[in-house]
């Protein structure tokens, strides 16, 4: 990210000088930072609403119920964790929290799951198959409700932002399944 940041700014200055648009670029630079803050402030309401709703699910135990339901199917994906009940529970909680868009709540469960798996790891420097699988499905970012994106769309005045929910769900499911397939194929080649 560091190099991209530097590269983008320097490229802009170079192009601005070549195209003789330095004044416009400087003007845009100042104006857009203002705009960024306005967008962030616009997110507060919807984020607060969604995090409030999801917190009800968390405290009432609905999230735990959901994660208990997905534990069994998860064992098919993580055959190595048959005897590591703690790790499977944390992975289930991590996926449930992510699915609801609770990224902040999901991360501690994810780290906890990694620690549980690390306990049974023979080579502490190297990731196990289960760890790689867990990471790959996490990077696919499975989410039922993309709360932040909905917040941005609503703040920007889109008609009916909810229309993106199903397409997003389909795409994230495809990414999730492909992550599983890739990780299972690749684990044979990386010993």
């Amino acid at each position: 990210m560091n190099y991209i940041f530097i590269f983008l700014i320097l490229i802009s200055f170079v192009c601005a000088i070549i195209n003789g648009k330095v004044d416009i670029v400087v003007n845009e630079m100042l104006k857009s930072s203002q705009k960024a803050v306005e967008i962030a402030i616009g997110l507060i309401g919807i984020m607060a609403f969604w995090l409030g709703i999801v917190n009800i699910a968390k405290v009432s135990g609905l999230m735990n119920l959901f994660s208990n339901m997905i534990k069994k199917p998860l064992l098919l994906i993580f055959p190595d964790l048959k005897n590591n009940n703690e790790a499977i529970s944390d992975i289930a909680l991590n996926i449930s929290a992510n699915a609801l868009g609770l990224t902040n709540a999901a991360t501690p469960f994810g780290i906890k799951a990694m620690e549980d798996m690390q306990k049974e790891n023979e080579n502490k420097n190297q990731a196990t198959n289960s760890m790689c699988t867990f990471l790959a499905i996490n990077t696919a970012g499975f989410q039922i409700v993309p709360a932040v994106v909905l917040a941005i769309l609503t703040a920007s005045g889109m008609n009916n932002p909810a229309q993106i929910i199903i397409p997003t769900l389909i795409v994230t499911s495809i990414a999730f399944i492909s992550a599983l397939i890739f990780v299972k194929i690749l684990e044979r080649f990386f010993k």
Binding site: M114, N125, Q126, A127, T139, A140, F182, L186
Partner: peptide
């Protein structure tokens, strides 16, 4: 974040799959 938290240095195929 996840590999860093437990000190894993060899990611093996995790990144490529991701």
């Amino acid at each position: 974040v996840y590999f860093g938290a437990v000190g894993i240095k060899k990611f093996r195929h995790a990144l490529l799959a991701g």
